[in-house]
Simulated assay, not measured.
Amino acid sequence: MSRIYKSAPLPFMGQKRYFVRAFSETLEKVEGKVDTIVDLFGGSGLLSHTAKRVLPGCRVVYNDYDGYTDRLAGIDRTNEILLLIKDCLTGVEPNARLTEEQRSDVLAIVEAYEAKGYVDVMTIGRSVLFSGKWVKTLEELRKHTMYNRVKPGGYDSAGYLDGLEVVHMDYRELFDLHKDNSRALFLLDPPYLTTECGQYENYWRLTDYLNVLKLTKGTKYIYFTSDKSQIMELCNWLVDEFGEAAPLYGANAQVRTNTLNYQAKFNDMMITRI
């Protein structure tokens, strides 16, 4: 088996790198009890990648819900662009704000490549925008103040997808394909309610999250959420009202506190029933 990644090879908002250890330990507990792991909202693929390394004998289905594999396929071009930007910013202090002239030079490089084909604007943006800023398009990139945040060296994704079965499907259709397999484990990491869902093509409403919760009935699952979503508050209310019939009844929860800045914190949760 190829190398183990502790974080996704390209930037991705919401990747579960801080849960890799706890997630791995949970998977070890189901060794021999499951034969298929289905990552319904694959995101960066980090959960799928980790699952295949921990349980190499399992079939792991990575639903590339966000087009992340397109970004991986363009990694050489991304490195070319970043090298040109780095050369363009020679002499500029790390994290320094760019002048309008420097900013125009950066945009000119990106625009020239986009005219020739695909450009991973999200990764480029993480290299020239203030921490916490994310963009998907060149139009969005043009609107922002820029900083010299280009990291030394290039990106590498060698072996990251090895052993994974990559699909591009509506999560409900993929669930239907595997719901009758009693030895299937479902990974549920939908976009968090009340947080930025800009990477998703369609805005997620409360009903969308509730429909995901329905998938936990009678299945083995690892479900990720946050206290920002208030989903747990809802589920606790449902348990009080409906007992064992409530979503997530009897599940175990692990909580991790994330610090966004000196003012903002929130709790990520990994909820399991295996």
Rank of each mutant, 00 (worst) to 15 (best):
L10E: 03
M13G: 12
Q15N: 15
K16P: 04
T26Y: 03
E28V: 04
G32M: 08
G32T: 07
G32Y: 06
V34Y: 02
V34S: 10
T36F: 01
I37R: 02
L40Q: 00
L40I: 07
F41P: 00
G43A: 05
H49S: 00
H49N: 08
C58R: 08
V61I: 14
L72R: 02
L72K: 05
R77S: 11
E80G: 12
L82G: 05
C88Q: 10
T90C: 13
L98P: 00
L98Y: 07
L98C: 05
Q102L: 12
S104W: 13
E114H: 13
E114C: 09
Y118F: 12
Y118A: 12
M122L: 15
W134M: 08
T137C: 07
T137G: 02
E140N: 06
H144R: 09
M146Y: 02
M146P: 01
Y147N: 02
N148M: 04
Y155V: 07
G163Y: 07
L164W: 08
L164E: 03
V166I: 11
D170E: 04
R172Y: 04
L177F: 15
S182A: 11
L188P: 07
T194D: 05
Y200G: 03
Y200V: 00
N202D: 11
L206K: 13
Y209D: 07
T216M: 04
K217S: 11
T219K: 07
Y221R: 06
F224D: 06
K228H: 06
C235E: 10
N236G: 01
N236K: 05
E241T: 07
L248Y: 00
Y249G: 03
N252H: 15
T259L: 08
F266L: 10
F266V: 07
M269C: 11
I271C: 06
T272C: 04
R273I: 01
R273W: 15
